[in-house]
């Protein structure tokens, strides 16, 4: 059991590096979707003491929403805006990858410094991997200029936090978990609509150009 959890956690961490190094927006969307599917599997594998209905529902919703619905919404926005590549990011792709490696080191160090309470059991790799996913998401929002890539960053943050919750098999009530997923869905949906409007008003979705409002 622990072996498979570890494998999944490592895979999740590897998808982050791909997010950092990829200039094609399509592959970013696919990668973050794959990450979502991995999370769904983690929910099944991580559920200690047999699969309750709780775990199955959660895993299924996770996989359907993050693996199918989100990429579909994002790909639709992508078609409407005729976007192919993230050109001229604020920080280059090679530099991003290097920074990613550095981030892994930092996250491993933080993970080793966080003492878990006795009752909580999880793979030792989980905290660093979840933190890494979260930080990569934050980094993408700051360092990428296209609104769509920023949404991918937001999803990565969301994935990192979910990995944290699922990996520890923290039992929030099912209703709350579903509420969280519903909020994430609505967020992506609303962001997609706004991206559509941005592309129509500005003829591009370069969030870096959204700079009329300042003091």
């Amino acid at each position: 059991m622990d072996f498979w959890v570890n494998c999944l956690v490592v895979l999740i961490a590897m998808t982050n590096l791909r997010l950092l190094g990829s200039s094609r927006v399509v592959s970013c969307v696919h990668t973050v979707a794959f990450q979502g599917v991995l999370l769904g599997v983690l929910a099944i594998v991580g559920a200690s003491g047999g699969l309750a209905a709780h775990g199955i529902v959660l895993a299924a919703v996770n996989i359907v929403l993050k693996g199918l619905v989100f990429p579909w919404l994002l790909m639709r926005a992508l078609r409407e805006t005729h976007l192919r590549r993230e050109v001229e990011p604020a920080i280059g792709f090679g530099a991003s990858m290097l920074l990613g490696v550095l981030l892994i080191g930092i996250c491993l160090w933080i993970g080793s410094r966080l003492p878990l309470p006795v009752g909580v059991q999880a793979s030792p790799l989980l905290v660093p991997a979840a933190l890494f996913t979260l930080m990569v998401g934050l980094f993408m929002i700051v360092a990428r200029r296209k609104a769509l890539t920023q949404v991918v960053g937001y999803l990565s943050i969301e994935n990192g936090i979910t990995a944290f919750g699922l990996g520890f098999a923290l039992k929030e009530a099912l209703l709350v978990e579903l509420g969280i997923l519903l909020d994430a869905f609505m967020a992506v949906f609303v962001m997609g609509i706004i991206i559509f409007h941005i592309s129509r008003e500005f003829d591009h979705i370069d969030a870096g150009e959204l700079s009329a409002l300042k003091d």
Partner: peptide, 25 residues
């Protein structure tokens, strides 16, 4: 529906969503 309010909406959505994601953690 104009550019300035669109920009404000995007910032609001992104900054608050990320902020609240931190609260989820």
């Amino acid at each position: 529906r104009q550019k300035r309010s669109l920009e404000a909406t995007w910032k609001y959505l992104l900054v608050c969503s990320v902020g609240i994601a931190v609260a989820l953690l």
